[in-house]
Nucleic acid binder design. Structure first.
Lengths: 144, 144
DNA sequence: TATTGACTTAAAGTTCACTTTAAGTTGTAA
DNA sequence: TTACAACTTAAAGTGAACTTTAAGTCAATA
């Protein structure tokens, strides 16, 4: 019989492990996203599974979920498997919103690229009078 | 000899044309991004070229530029063609930052997709005990 | 044993990008 | 001519996501 001892992270070590600051971790805890364990002296400690959990939260956050949406997700998760449909619906909505933003942002990048190219052609400037940017865009069927 | 009369937009009409609110336009003006003309009575008016300008600003903004970065761009633009190298450098930096974010965000989407698929497989649940998400990710070489 | 660094809490402060408010002016339509 | 919508300004307010401060506790090291 072997006793398996979990690795325990202090808030400082955990912060390094997940790439957040200790105050941010306390803030997230306050918002209901994380629930660390406590030592007898009142200090927080975190375990390996918490690293995965926070990293996953950060992925969701990175897709555009707000703290309160994450909180809702966490609440449903804590309620058990019967809330899987709700969680799935939330994630699908997040994905749909994300994809809309993603498409928009790709268009913004296209215009940025076009502008950079336009400046570079203008700098190389063989001709004195240069085609204006609106025209330049139209040549590629871009903008608007 | 024909006198060409430019279309003049009131702030309300202009707001509709560019998809911003009138207060936001005043705010942008305050921040130095736009400089509308004024009627004798003090009211702002905008012209067709201003529509293109604001739309272009919104594209840059959409790539991650802050109001103050846009302001810097506007200042350089107003200074004339000798600032093209600075503007180009700024836009290239914005693009580089954008591409970093873009890659990160694609990874976030991948994890979101994986989680959605994992939930759907779990819901379809033929087997009682289900593979955990960390495992599931590893099967595709995803996460971290 | 004294100091240092890491932790604890609650509350206040910060930044960004707007939005709202308040008080007043102007132009048009009934 | 009176009502009303749209405009004007400066200043205050908002929401999100943290960050900083203040005042104190605790554990390890010189």
């Amino acid at each position: 019989m072997a006793t398996v001892t979990e690795v325990r992270y202090s808030i400082g070590d955990f912060a390094k492990a997940v790439g957040l600051s200790a105050p941010t971790l306390r803030y997230y805890e306050n918002e209901g996203l994380i629930e660390p364990h406590r030592l007898a002296n009142g200090r927080r400690y975190y375990e390996a599974a918490d690293v995965n959990w926070v990293k996953f939260l950060l992925h969701l956050k990175g897709t555009g979920m707000s703290i309160s949406e994450l909180k809702q997700y966490v609440v449903w998760r804590a309620a058990g498997d019967q809330t899987i449909p709700q969680r799935l619906e939330l994630l699908k909505q997040v994905k749909a919103d994300f994809l809309v933003q993603f498409t928009e942002v790709q268009h913004h990048l296209q215009i940025l690229n076009d502008k950079i190219n336009w400046y570079e052609e203008k700098e190389a400037g063989v001709t004195q009078d240069h085609e204006d940017f609106a025209n330049y865009l139209q040549r590629f069927g871009h903008q608007e």
